[in-house]
Design a protein around this nucleic acid. Structure first.
Length: 274
DNA sequence: ACCCAGCCCTGGGCGC
DNA sequence: TGCGCCCAGGGCTGGG
């Protein structure tokens, strides 16, 4: 499941592969992925002839900058982009194909079909959903203690739910939230209003540290997730609690347990996280 | 303002 | 071997 580190890894890889390449045509096998009011046909027509200029990222969104337009894509659970020669056969989960003028293809593959693509005129993308709902990333300068205090300590929601809220802090998903709360020593079911300043600082540091470390390792490869070059990340080897239920806590040796928080599988050590 | 269920999907794991 | 069932989950919507 791509979270910020996996999306950033994809961004870096794709930038090497598609910048300066031009879209000749687009094939859409699963139209629901295209979130464009004017329809799939106009989506295709508008992108034809445009060249990829750069690739950005905001939270878990990939942003492909072209000639005046920006394609904003969310990979959701299992979405992935790859660049292949047009002679390579595509599998049944390839739903969108950008045919490039050099004979290559940028392919969007998604077993769950949950991913999305929005298209905006460059400059308008931040004024409308989905990007209006994306807050600061853990290492942004605007992610200050005062900002975080206001969002957390005035809330009765559980801290895990607050951290999964992309408008509060962008980039964390189920894996890295569990890792962050373990490192910070905070129980995921604690109410926001009960979290002390010192704990908020620990959460901020743990979130930034965890995400940056995972970016360095190329993200986590859970199940079949691989990046655009088919390479796998290695961060899953150093997950402290996620999917570690039944094994000893790396800190105290007590058993890591799995519970449900807000409908999400949640991994923690009840001794280390109060 | 919050929570929850349901929705979108399919493959994998389970019981039988 | 295989069927049917349930689960996983990010973001969104609709109802309480």
């Amino acid at each position: 499941m791509p979270e910020l580190p996996e999306v950033e890894t994809a961004r870096r890889t794709l930038e090497q592969l598609v910048v300066d390449k031009t879209i000749e045509d687009i094939t859409v096998h699963w139209p629901k992925i295209i979130k464009f009011d004017e329809g799939v046909d106009s989506f295709i027509e508008r992108l034809k002839g445009q060249t990829f200029r750069s690739i950005g990222r905001k939270g878990k969104f990939l942003m492909f900058y072209l000639d005046g337009d920006v394609l904003v894509s969310h990979l959701r659970m299992e979405g992935k982009f790859s660049v292949k020669s047009e002679t390579e056969p595509d599998d049944k989960h390839t739903h969108v194909i950008f045919h490039l003028t050099n004979g290559e293809q940028l392919r969007y593959n998604d077993v769950r079909k949950f991913g999305t693509m929005h298209l905006f005129k460059e400059g308008q993308e931040y004024g409308v959903p989905p990007l209006t709902l994306v807050g600061p990333e853990p290492f942004d300068e605007s992610f200050t203690l005062d900002y975080f205090k206001a969002k957390v300590q005035r809330s009765s929601r559980m801290i895990k739910n607050i951290l999964l809220d992309q408008s509060v802090v962008a980039g964390l998903g189920n894996i890295y939230v569990d890792e962050t709360l373990f490192k910070a020593g905070v129980h995921p079911e604690r109410r926001g209003s009960s979290i002390e300043d010192i704990e908020l600082v620990r959460i901020q540091q743990a979130a930034a540290e965890t995400l940056l470390d995972a970016v360095e390792k190329g993200g986590s490869t859970i199940r079949s997730y691989v990046n655009s070059q088919g390479k796998i990340g290695t961060f899953q080897k150093q997950l402290l609690v996620y999917s570690q239920q039944g094994t000893p806590c790396p800190n105290c040796g007590r058993e890591i347990i799995k519970i449900k928080v807000g409908g999400r599988g949640t991994h923690l050590c009840t001794a280390c996280q109060q």
